[in-house]
Design a protein around this nucleic acid. Structure first.
Lengths: 329, 329
DNA sequence: CTGTTAGCGCCTTCAT
DNA sequence: ATGAAGGCGCTAACAG
């Protein structure tokens, strides 16, 4: 059905073979505008014969559309770009963008440096931006030029729609589960202090502890397993009577379990542990991890779709988080 | 240093402000061709003042360069695109491509369907392709038009350079470790049968077992944890005397451990378990997982760089795999 | 309904 | 060393 062309066919070639003008060929291929059934057929046949594939770059150039969707991640160093969470966002976004002829780029946004984001906004090849690890400062630094084609995975603003998991509700479900199981000395390992969307679970924790008349025991974390392991030791040291630890990520929670085991503490016998994310391995560990689901892939797909579509999205789109009760708590 | 332009500046604007022609501006900005120090300075100043960012799409159009690097994954269904391994490849590639103004696209390649790859080769916006899960058939289906700008993570060919971990050596190290620890009834959970790069560890296993006069015990797998769990049961059923299991991925190995635990078998007391990959969580589980390292990120970076650079790469680039001995074996 | 005419933003011979 | 001109591949008004 196609002759292996040495030089890929262009619209011009298609038009010539079909015996019509470029415009007509363009119309039937892009599906825009009118065309007689006859012309339509000629063009389709020519496309088939030539194995013609439109060039998204040329198309974007004339339409002013852009060919890249940027995933921009705020962080203290470029190492944030190596994060599995970021990779999942990029992968899911790429999958959505591919049919549209759009590629995904990955940028590190240093703290307190609006220049990078400014440049991205001035790059005419950029069709939109997904912000990750968003802060108020970052939102304030979003240039006008990006209006309407930028979204955030995390907190949003009046001009930047937000897509995120409902981690307040998820956290509440986990904490209530802990409470229902009789746990009363519950420590929490949080995310980075500068990250607003990691503070919401903390607020939930504070509120619930206050309501139940229980003490607040908070340890800073960074979503990673290594920190969980050290945090477990710290928690044991500062509050020897703890009977539960809630970590804001599964990786951290598994680190906590490792740390507790290091100290000879049984899980869940002595201390219950719960995480957040429901990573694939959460059901495989010993003990299997109690956690709350976190549909990162679906969130990224929704965010990318919103940017691609370009029509105004709802200010906040929350994805439900469900408790997944396993053995660890 | 930049006035927030409503409409991003173009080369034309820069030239006007600098008081030179577009050609001159282009030369100094692209760093190609000659330019007087005076002109150079004028242009640089104008770029700064206007906050000019070149449009990679326009540039690619005129140079015939392309703006997207395609990660193409062979698999039975589009679900392969959701794999964390694939996401890591995409993320690492995106990081490399971004400075070059190139975005990453993600394609699923169905079995026995050369059309998709053909189309990719005819898309003039594609600057190169990284093949993942490569087979001989796939290699044979690589169109001429892709020559010199396609690489494989997995097996390669005369025209497709290969980038991969040295999983033969890695597997040998793991298996010798098992043997040195006194294990003599070693089963192996492999990858998909159709995946050549997953067969290399199997060959190594066969050779070593033969050399040591030990029985071959092979179970098919799919790299995933769930399969490891069921495979453990099968192994126990078919070969009640096994004292070790080597799984071709850490996920699978952790599944195996879970499956053994389900059956009341102690790890490593009764049966040792080893994996391959050294994922971040491998050191956190109970018992901590013995495995071999697998620098996926570095491999993807090398592959993407090779495609971007466009100069012929070595036929095969092998990344070393190191034994990481922990508690499970 | 179709073809002609202009570009989108940029690079690259060619003269100068 | 610089400018003018042409064109990469495509779409979007325009006329016809």
């Amino acid at each position: 059905m196609t002759t292996a062309a040495q030089r890929p066919a262009t619209l011009e070639d298609v038009a010539r073979v079909a015996g019509v003008s470029r415009s007509t060929a363009s119309r039937v291929i892009a599906g825009t505008g009118f065309a007689s059934p006859a012309a339509r057929e000629q063009v389709t046949a020519a496309v088939d014969q030539l194995g013609y594939v439109p060039n998204p770059a040329a198309r974007a150039l004339v339409r002013g559309g852009g060919v890249r969707l940027v995933v921009a991640v705020l962080g203290t160093s470029a190492a944030v770009l190596d994060d599995p969470y970021v990779h999942q966002v990029v992968g899911s976004a790429a999958r959505v963008c591919t049919p549209a002829g759009v590629g995904v780029a990955l940028h590190w946004l240093p703290f307190g440096d609006p220049r990078t984001l400014d440049q991205i906004g001035r790059d005419r090849s950029v069709c939109g931006v997904i912000l990750v690890n968003t802060t108020e400062d970052l939102l304030a630094a979003v240039p006008q030029s990006l209006r309407g084609r930028v979204v955030s995975i995390g907190i949003g603003s009046a001009t930047v729609p937000s897509f995120d998991v409902d981690n307040a509700a998820g956290s509440e479900a986990v904490l209530r589960h802990l409470y229902a199981a009789g746990r009363r000395r519950i420590a929490m390992v949080t995310g980075p202090r500068w990250l607003p969307c990691a503070q919401r679970p903390v607020q939930t924790y504070r509120r619930l502890m206050a309501e139940a008349g229980l003490p607040e025991r908070i340890l800073p974390g960074d979503f990673r397993a290594a920190r969980g392991r050290t945090a477990a030791g710290e928690a044991l040291h500062r509050w020897p009577d703890i009977d539960a630890v809630y970590a804001i990520s599964d990786d951290t929670a598994l680190g906590v379990i490792a740390g507790l085991r290091d100290a000879g503490v049984r899980v869940p016998g002595d201390v219950a542990v719960a995480g957040f994310d429901d990573i694939p391995l959460a059901g495989m560990t010993a003990p299997a991890l109690t956690t709350a689901s976190h549909p990162v892939g679906r969130i990224a797909v929704a965010a990318a779709t919103a940017v691609l579509d370009g029509r105004p999205a709802a200010p906040v789109t929350l994805f439900p988080s469900a408790l997944v009760a396993r053995a660890s708590a």
